[in-house]
Design a protein around this nucleic acid. Structure first.
Ligand SMILES: [Mn+2]
Ligand SMILES: [Mn+2]
Ligand SMILES: [Zn+2]
Ligand SMILES: [Zn+2]
Lengths: 153, 153
DNA sequence: TTGCTTATTGAAAATGATTCCCATTTCCAA
DNA sequence: TTGGAAATGGGAATCATTTTCAATAAGCAA
């Protein structure tokens, strides 16, 4: 057995290194929560989860980390109109491309993955068009449908 | 000339009446601003505009009215990540169905209207599917593309 | 028109999410 | 191992939005 350190780094490790960001305990803990917990987590949600194991990690750090992850494209910031930002993974093995169906009355949110192929075709066309016409470099999109859920309609 | 009152009500008038909402000066002033001013207005933007003519109308009223209009489907609430809500007409002669292209760096927002027919076809399909599968009543959608603008890329 | 009922309003205070500050700690390249 | 920059955490500060409540004014009935 060599004393070689475990090279089985998490999927996001290299991206941190490439950006010159340090791999700290708070960051690892937060990423772990994001990987393990499904759904649309608020900063407080994450904070509470993280707090179970690391009661020393501060709320401010969660805010900062989540912001960092957003800039890195690892996480996506969502606004469902409940007054607080929510986050979900946009990279990594857990992340599945999807969009949202939102109830305007009770705020229920459904992740849906239907029509991915059609969407891909459609979205690619629009992206190409927009990139050319407006000289943008597009790297993501978001599609949301709004209405009333089963219970609320 | 008859003394008959002008029946040339603004397009949103009937919707107010139908809902039992009163047609007040603040509400008229705010609607007028929304109709006249293009773009994505923050509550403060609206407040400042309105204030030019009606310096007595309060900020709170703008918040309330804009919320009312959102519930009525007259206005759409947008989040471009700058920490304040923004609004645009979603009904009336000024409203043109469109989506947004957003620069993640400088926050520039472009309204685009391309590919409307393709989109309509695609969106209708998805809507139908989602309504059936999740038993929702869908009444609107939002599509946004994110990237870097000409200057920022 | 006049009065009445009650929705609406405005000012000020409260709230609450997010950011800022800064002294202290931690990562990690050399 | 160590110096220095990056990161942290806790409390204060911000600032958009909401709440409160007394005053006002739409709109309906008479
Ligand atoms: Mn989701
Ligand atoms: Mn727009
Ligand atoms: Zn609902
Ligand atoms: Zn830009």
């Amino acid at each position: 057995m060599s004393r070689t350190r475990n090279r089985n780094f998490p999927w996001w490790h290299q991206q941190f290194v490439d950006n010159g960001y340090r791999i700290t305990e708070p960051r690892q803990a937060i990423l772990k929560v994001l990987n393990k917990t499904a759904g649309h987590l608020s900063v407080e949600d994450i904070y509470h989860q993280v707090h179970k194991r690391y009661s020393n990690i501060g709320l401010t750090t969660v805010y900062r980390t989540v912001g960092l992850l957003e800039n890195m494209g690892i996480v996506r910031k969502l606004d469902f109109g409940d007054g607080r930002a929510r986050y979900e993974l946009s990279k990594g093995p857990q992340a599945i491309h999807h969009h949202h169906l939102i109830c305007k009355n009770c705020g229920k949110v459904i992740d849906y993955k239907e029509y991915l192929d059609n969407e891909l075709k459609f979205v690619n066309k629009v992206e190409g068009l927009l990139e050319k016409k407006y000289n943008f470099k597009i790297d993501s999109h978001q599609l949301s449908f709004y209405g009333l859920c089963e219970k609320c309609k």
